[in-house]
Design a binder for these strands. Structure first.
Lengths: 161, 161
DNA sequence: TTTCGAGTCATACTTTCGGGTGATTTTGTC
DNA sequence: GACAAAATCACCCGAAAGTATGACTCGAAA
């Protein structure tokens, strides 16, 4: 119980402890040198300089180690314009009038989403040729010449969302 | 009011405070050792401690100043509902944001009407290649791969009618 | 004056689209 | 079962779309 607490404390404050211990050691060593060689008075400037440098480094190290990585989250809102309100329902009479089959409408929807024929084929688990056939028929029935016009027209007729 | 400020200060500067306290403790311990072992030159300890403290602070300050905050840009698409009846106006901010030129927008408009590149070229009295260049740039800027997706996206962003 | 963005055009190449035609299979209905 | 519509797939071929790269002009801004 106690050892766990101590262990936790150690893990949480390892940095601080390490720093404290190293600081103490350093001062001890310095003091030791000081006594050992009696050179204190002569090179006091160098001594202080060394201390300053060392502790500046330590400070930087500390800051890097201890500071939680500063992540500034910048949220950029991008407005997406959508027409309001009524959820979409297929204009069934129009679909029947034009003789567009269910499957064709399905393809048409995917065409409108900007998928290529190949992508549509994969999505519907059919061959590329099948998709082509469908889209060709759609173009005929909608009396258009390409997919862009087909989407345009289908939207106007409320055949797709 | 005041206690809140202090609390905030504590939470924000916990590391620094901890460091200060531990340094003080350390000095105290050193002083104790000093007395213990009859080390007399205690002024120098305080001096060195002060230097250390100062330059550690400097280091921390430096690190803080020099560290460029990591900026995480998060784009959030916000839906803006538009009433169906209003006449169209180009979303100019969006156009500028995406860096879409006036001419490109013009081409985009015609693409949306279902015209082929050749037809657009004739309409604008430019070459087919020019239209292709324009549309390619449009696709890049809208981050899409074909004209159908471009129209889809442009409509959502209210870049075209 | 240099620089830069916008617009223009070209060449070469790859990929996708769309038309035409025919065929087989599935499915629902009489 | 017969029939019809729907759905599936194939092959061919030309047209259109899209990519990559480079270059030239022009006018505005630095």
């Amino acid at each position: 119980m106690v050892s766990k607490t101590i262990s936790d404390f150690y893990h949480k404050h390892r940095q601080e402890l390490l720093y404290g211990v190293s600081l103490a050691l350093l001062l001890f060593v310095l003091r030791w040198f000081e006594l050992r060689f009696l050179i204190l008075d002569h090179i006091i400037e160098i001594y202080v300089g060394a201390i300053a440098l060392l502790f500046t480094g330590l400070g930087i190290w500390l800051a890097h180690k201890l500071t939680t990585p500063k992540v500034e989250t910048r949220i950029v809102e991008r407005e997406v314009y959508v027409t309001a309100g009524d959820e979409f329902t297929v204009n069934e009479p129009e679909r029947l009038r034009l003789g567009i089959s269910q499957r064709e409408l399905e393809v048409l929807q995917l065409v409108a989403e900007g998928l290529s024929n190949q992508e549509i084929a994969e999505r519907l688990f059919v061959s590329l040729n099948t998709v082509k056939t469908h889209s060709s028929r759609i173009f005929e029935k909608l009396e258009v010449r390409n997919r862009t016009q087909a989407v345009e027209r289908a939207r106007r007729l409320r055949l797709i969302a």
